[in-house]
C-alpha cells in the first residue's frame, strides 16, 4: 500500500512530463507560410537512398520524370507536426499528376513514427523514409527542421521551403502542379 501511494504521484508526474515533452514548444506558435521560394540556380538534387517503413530501400533516382516533394522532419518538431496533414492533402490532390511526396524522418525509429502518424488527420499515405543518423542533412544542405525541397522532373531543385508550410494552400498547389507540366 505504501509503495502504491508513492507510485501514484510518480506516475502523475511522468504523465505530465510526457504531455509537456510533446508540447514543450506548443504555445503561441508562429503561422505557417503559404508559398515556396524558387531556386535562383537550379542544381541537381543530391542522392537520396533510404529505407521506408517496410524496410525496403527507396531511391530518388527512380522517380526521375516526376515532381518529387522531399520533406525533412521529426515527430518532436512542432512545425513539422503542424504541416504533415497539409502535406498529405497536397499528396492527395497531386498524386495522379506526376507528383510524389517523400518524408525523410531524422533520427527516430519506425515505431515512434508509426505511433505519431496515427495522430495526423488525414493520416499520411506517402512514403516515410528513415535517416537514423541524419547523414542526408549535410548533403542536402538542411540546417533546420522542417526543410522541404521540390524536385523538378529533370532532377533539379526548383523550389525550397525552410520552416513550416501549409502545403495545401492554393499558391503552393499551383507552383507544384505547374512544375509537373514543365
Amino acid at each position: 500500500m505504501r509503495g502504491r501511494s508513492r507510485a501514484i504521484p510518480f506516475v502523475g508526474v511522468m504523465i505530465l512530463w510526457l504531455l509537456f515533452g510533446a508540447a514543450v514548444w506548443g504555445a503561441e506558435l508562429p503561422p505557417l507560410t503559404h508559398s515556396l521560394t524558387p531556386s535562383e540556380n537550379r542544381q541537381p538534387a543530391p542522392a537520396l537512398r533510404l529505407q521506408n517503413m517496410d524496410e525496403e530501400m527507396v531511391d530518388i533516382r527512380d522517380l526521375k520524370g516526376r515532381v518529387v516533394v522531399v520533406n525533412f522532419w521529426a515527430t518532436w518538431c512542432p512545425p513539422c507536426r503542424r504541416e504533415m496533414g497539409s502535406l498529405e492533402r497536397l499528396y492527395q490532390a497531386t498524386r495522379e499528376k506526376r507528383v510524389e511526396v517523400l518524408a525523410v524522418n531524422i533520427g527516430e525509429d519506425i515505431d515512434t513514427v508509426f505511433s505519431f502518424l496515427g495522430t495526423v488527420e488525414p493520416s499520411p499515405g506517402f512514403p516515410m523514409l528513415f535517416d537514423f543518423e541524419a547523414a542526408s542533412m549535410e548533403s542536402w544542405g538542411v540546417k533546420g527542421l522542417p526543410t522541404t525541397y521540390i524536385i523538378a522532373p529533370d532532377g533539379t531543385i526548383a523550389y525550397s521551403a525552410v520552416g513550416g508550410r501549409e502545403f495545401d494552400h492554393p499558391e503552393i498547389l499551383r507552383q507544384v502542379l505547374e512544375l509537373a507540366v514543365e
Binding site: L29, P30, T33, H34, T37, S160, V162, G163
Partner: peptide
C-alpha cells in the same frame, strides 16, 4: 539563410 516570403525556423 532565409529567403523573403516566409522562410523561418524555430
Amino acid at each position: 539563410s532565409y529567403r523573403p516570403g516566409g522562410d523561418w525556423n524555430q
